[in-house]
Design a protein around this nucleic acid. Structure first.
Lengths: 153, 153
DNA sequence: ACAAATCTGACTAATTTTGTCAAGTATAAA
DNA sequence: TTTATACTTGACAAAATTAGTCAGATTTGT
């Protein structure tokens, strides 16, 4: 599996923030209820998203989290990479430490394959934005509901 | 990371068999030396590849393993799936057990995204064969060596 | 002051990964 | 027929990662 629940849940939470974009700070408690993800775990995910400057927090009562940029400026690739680290087919394409380094890299046919795959993955993730998902979601729910929002994510 | 060392090493070993295709059974001992992967671990990988009917074994002295089909008939996707199980972006796209099942699946925008990504990944893996890699490898080594084989993989 | 919310770090159970090891079985060659 | 070679199987285990939980501190609006 390419993504762990960190990536999966994190993207869900970010989409939740995108859906409520412009409505002021959204609390973890609300997101937790809507998404069925534990408050504590969301806090952990939001630490990473905050460090990556994708969200910001407002403390105190009526506080919560907001997207730093507009949903159309936030690529799913940015979100996933903030949560999971660099996305790659195998380690040698995105070496994290010295033991990932491979001395054959420059002449290795498999490196070429894994690199091509890695690029394709990131291409797909970077060609979708939070806004794009919101729009697709609205289309989906129009078929089922009288009013388009809120839709299931 | 999409693949663990099971997938990485397994593909390396299969490419090694492809390079020596037509030369009779290749022993694990030889592959182990060439690829720098422990004999015991290769044995484990080959159990899966044999069950998937990608390789067959010949016992006794001068025994070893052979590809069942021609290198051009073996897609990297087949190899990877034999070693790692179904390849997917996240679990809900390829549910392995009941807890992976998601009741929102039919109306979920994220499912659409993860499915699209999963399809793209398998597309890349299935568009490359062992023979294709052999050819690319020969091209690479021609630039460095007087004779094209054996090349580094 | 109080309550609502974020923030931080420590902790942990479960699972997966990445192997090792030992004791077989099958078979070709001497 | 003996023997060495090589595959075969299953058990075991250390290390890393995953998927969280928990306690407590901090901030701030009312």
């Amino acid at each position: 599996m390419l993504l762990s629940t960190k990536g999966e849940y994190g993207v869900r939470c970010m989409l939740d923030l995108a859906i409520h974009y412009g409505q002021g700070p959204i609390s973890i408690r609300d997101i937790s209820k809507r998404e069925g993800i534990s408050k504590n775990y969301i806090e952990q995910l939001f630490v990473r998203l905050r460090h990556a400057k994708l969200i910001k927090s407002v403390r105190g009562p009526k506080g919560g989290y907001l997207l730093i940029s507009q949903p159309r400026r936030i690529k799913i690739g940015d979100v996933v990479r903030a949560l999971e680290g660099p996305i790659a087919a195998i380690r040698c394409v995105q070496p994290q430490n010295s033991k990932d380094l491979c001395e054959r890299i420059s002449t290795c046919v498999l490196y070429i394959l894994w690199k091509r795959l890695t690029d394709k993955i990131n291409e797909v993730l970077d060609s979708t934005t939070l806004e794009g998902l919101c729009r697709e979601g609205m289309k989906l729910s129009k078929h089922r509901l009288a009013h388009p929002l809120p839709f299931q994510i």
